[in-house]
Design a protein around this nucleic acid. Structure first.
Length: 759
RNA sequence: UCGGGGAUCGUCUAAUGGCAGGACGCAAGACUCUGACUCUUGCUAUCUAGGUUCGAAUCCUAGUCCCCGAACCA
């Protein structure tokens, strides 16, 4: 069985399906059509479509087009194209604009129920009334308008009677909420603007927080996956659903970390700046992180999907190495890109000893280890072109290419020995060589001379001119946005180098636009759409990996600056600790204060424990009951250290203190082992059944454990050997195994038995 | 705790009280008609301090650091 890919979202879905909460999974990918999709969206697409595929559900592509002033059909078209190109088929392509009518009806319903009101405050006033992170807001003076007045005003808003910004519809929730999103959030604003889809049908447009949950509800979305910055919106998401439903299925929102990638920027605003400021050549400039750009650069959808799988899904803010993306690209292209020959900066080589005429060599498209069939004909005559980088007048140590007097093999062809430089340019670089060709070295046979390496070449007569666009990372530094610097100044001027005199073998004459090739020893290339008949343009997708020894050219220096302190964090007000909260709770409640005094007075109870046990009345009462049945220190230890795990999300009031007391009495009496007791405790909390129905057995004496220990050791001889060799961490493994077969065993005794047996 | 999240190799991510694992990266080597690919070996981590437990990355306590939230954006 294949290893299951697991992440917290799939875990949740699996639980939901098992529990029968949902019969099937529906997700959605909800881009706003105000820009091109980028690699960060690719992650979201892979997650949303991926989980649906895994659980045989479906995924909608839904445009979250609730803001007519920012959106455009150009983006709508590019988005759908990119999603499909990535390899995903939306179950439906939908627009939130198509739900405007339904959303409006629900808004009227809210008004009718007194849960929403029309507010005439200006945007400045609204902000002011909202309060701050540390201070509550104050109610709008329009908060208590009558239902009739609100309805009248809302309808007139819709009818276009008021100018932009004159009024808004707000939910009536709680201006003092600690969650700013709940302080009477805006539901509708007036915008006399043309919408790319609904045209001029509406002059009021819903806000994201109102629209999104309703869209999910209408579409029957079960798991609404978004990024971390929407965590604060979840409470409002739930409020909207709860006050507009019932919805079946009821959607829930889950947040994951967005993708942050080295050497690039991802915000739409910055991407737009790059495009509109002509720092790049449009949204699909191959240096951009957009899907369209990556496609033009020669990345395959498979590689991008592999990358998205590699980086995983979690809630930790993280920044992914660009190496991982590049690895995925190379890995895919290595298996799929046919090999051909091409030289970037040609040097001409005249061959002496050539038999004359043109020979046609058969060269395979793939190396043997890729194992794919196919070959092409490569002409070879008395004049060849090699790459400038493959010639050195004064070769460094380890140079495996051509140099005076040295012999190399021309890939798939003959070995040649360099005789002399017969032409140099003004800067002294060789431009024309004479070399001797060893005719006996065809078909892989070696000459008498040492062969220093294998180099690529093209036939001077038949090769084709190509414009090569060599792309590299757009930015010079891994984090162009960091340190308060202007990201535009971090653009690497060398990120695009256009090479015009390049040549490729004749077989590429009819290469299709978009086809991907490996130019052997040079890199992976794709035929660019700018290609015209007789004028091929190729983009370098990525270089081949170079081992450190071969890296002659300057590397990108990874400047890892110490992460700057966040000013917000510094100004963060000093917060109250849980300890302070407990003290305050006691200050408010004299009864709790008394309980604390009493418990603290017990000689066996530490001050810390007394504090922890009297943070609220439920805990204090439970402790009193339990401490009457067993020694108080035992009660305290279990209630503080063991009970929380058994409770999980439940409150302490969900456990019957008297039953807990009975359980601990059994532990105290020795009729129930501590390990078994933890299991029983979990059951007690989970099922709510009385202890008498659950009680486990007393621990098995150590003398009975010998056989169990032997069995486990015999079943894992190699682990036993490792343990004896010093890997003592395996002790836990052995104890765990024994405990699995003998649940009533005394773990301490098992521990001792294993230790002795293996010493 | 204003409120909500988070912290595991250099990077990304597993381990849901029982072997800290995988991948990228890096290093060394093998192979090679691509200095590629492939293969072998190695490297490096549980934020800190206490506690509970036979056993803690995981539970409890105190602390540290980071992210998000006061658009009529999404």
């Amino acid at each position: 069985m294949a290893v299951e890919r697991t992440d917290f979202i799939r875990d949740i879905i699996e639980r939901d399906l098992e529990a029968g909460t949902y019969q099937s999974v529906v997700t959605r990918f909800p881009p706003e059509p105000n820009g091109y999709l980028h690699i960060g969206h690719a992650k979201s697409i892979c997650v949303n479509f991926g989980v649906a595929l895994d659980f045989k559900g479906k995924t909608n592509l839904r445009y979250d087009d609730t803001n007519p002033t920012k959106e455009d059909v150009e983006y709508v078209e590019s988005i759908e194209r990119d999603v499909r190109w990535l390899g995903f088929e939306p179950a439906a392509v939908l627009f939130s604009a198509d739900y405007f009518g339904r959303m409006y009806e629900l808004a009227e319903r809210l008004v009718t129920e007194g849960k929403a009101y029309v507010c005439d405050l200006t945007d400045d006033q609204i902000r002011e009334y909202r309060g701050s992170l540390t201070e509550p807001g104050k109610p709008s003076p329009f908060r208590d308008r009558s239902v009739a007045e609100n309805m009248d005003l809302l309808r007139r808003m819709r009818a276009g009677e008021f100018p932009d910004g004159a009024r808004v519809l707000r939910a009536k929730i709680d201006m003092a909420s600690s969650n700013m999103k709940m302080r009477d959030p805006l539901l509708y604003r007036i915008r006399h603007a043309h919408h790319h889809r609904s045209g001029d049908a509406w002059v009021i447009y819903p806000m994201y927080d109102w629209a999104h949950p309703i869209e999910d509800g209408i579409e029957g979305v079960t798991h609404s996956i978004c990024t971390l910055e929407f965590e604060n919106n979840r409470e409002l998401y739930d409020w909207v659903l709860d006050n507009t439903g019932p919805w079946t299925p009821r959607p829930y929102q889950y947040e994951m970390a967005r993708l942050v990638l080295d050497y690039t920027v991802m915000s739409k605003r910055k991407l737009l700046t790059l495009v509109t400021g002509n720092h790049v050549n449009g949204w699909d400039d191959p240096r951009m992180p957009t899907i369209a750009a990556m496609r033009r650069r020669g990345y395959s959808p498979e590689a991008i999907r592999a990358f998205c799988e590699m980086i995983g899904i979690a809630k930790t803010n993280s920044s992914v190495d660009i190496d991982k993306l590049e690895y995925c690209i190379r890995e895919d292209l290595n298996k799929t890109a046919p090999r051909v020959l091409g030289v970037l900066r040609p040097i001409e080589v005249e061959l002496t000893g050539w038999k004359g005429g043109t020979e046609v060599l058969d060269a395979p498209f793939f190396p043997p280890d890729v194992g794919k069939p196919g070959s092409r004909q490569v002409p070879f005559s008395g004049r060849v072109l090699i790459d400038r980088e493959d010639w050195s007048d004064d070769p460094p140590k380890d140079y495996k290419r051509l140099a005076p007097g040295r012999t190399v093999r021309l890939r798939y062809g003959y070995c040649i020995t360099a005789d002399e430089v017969i032409e140099r340019d003004s800067t002294g670089n060789a431009t024309k060589l004479r070399a001797t060709v060893h005719m006996e070295t065809g078909g892989g046979k070696n000459p008498e001379q040492k062969v220093w390496g294998v180099i690529h070449w093209v036939d001077a007569a038949s090769s084709l001119p190509v414009e090569m666009r060599l792309y590299d990372r757009l930015f010079k530094v891994p984090k162009p946005e960091e340190g308060g610097q202007d990201f535009l100044e971090q653009i690497d001027p060398k990120s695009l180098e256009v090479v015009r005199g390049a040549r490729v073998e004749a077989s590429l004459a009819a290469a299709a636009v978009g086809s991907r090739w490996q130019l052997e020893r040079v890199g992976y290339f794709v035929v660019d759409p700018d290609t015209k008949p007789g004028a091929i343009v190729m983009n370098r997708t990525i270089t081949l990996r170079e081992s450190a020894k071969a890296a002659v050219t300057a590397q990108h220096v990874a400047i890892s600056e110490p992460t700057g302190r966040n000013p917000k964090a510094q100004t963060r007000p000093k917060t109250k600790s849980p300890q302070e909260q407990r003290m305050e709770a006691r200050a408010r409640d004299p009864e709790l204060m008394t309980a604390h005094a009493q418990i603290a007075a017990m000689p066996v109870i530490t001050a810390d424990h007394a504090d922890l046990l009297t943070g609220d009345m439920h805990t204090a009462k439970a402790f009193r009951i339990v401490a009457d049945m067993v020694p108080p220190e035992l009660a305290a230890k279990w209630m503080i250290n063991e009970l929380p795990r058994a409770l999980g999300d439940r409150g302490i009031e969900s456990v019957d203190a008297a039953e807990l007391g009975k359980l601990l009495a059994a532990v105290h009496a020795g009729s129930l082992g501590p390990s078994a007791a933890k299991t029983v405790l979990a059951e007690l909390v989970r099922t709510g059944r009385p202890f008498s129905e659950l009680k486990g057995a007393a621990p098995t004496p150590a003398v009975d454990l010998g056989a169990a220990v032997e069995a486990v050791i015999a079943a894992n001889p190699e682990k036993a050997a490792q343990y004896k060799a010093g890997k003592t961490g395996l002790l836990g493994f052995f104890v765990g195994q024994v405990m699995k077969t003998s649940p009533n065993a005394d773990a301490a005794a098992v521990n001792e038995a294993v230790r002795e047996r293996l010493s």
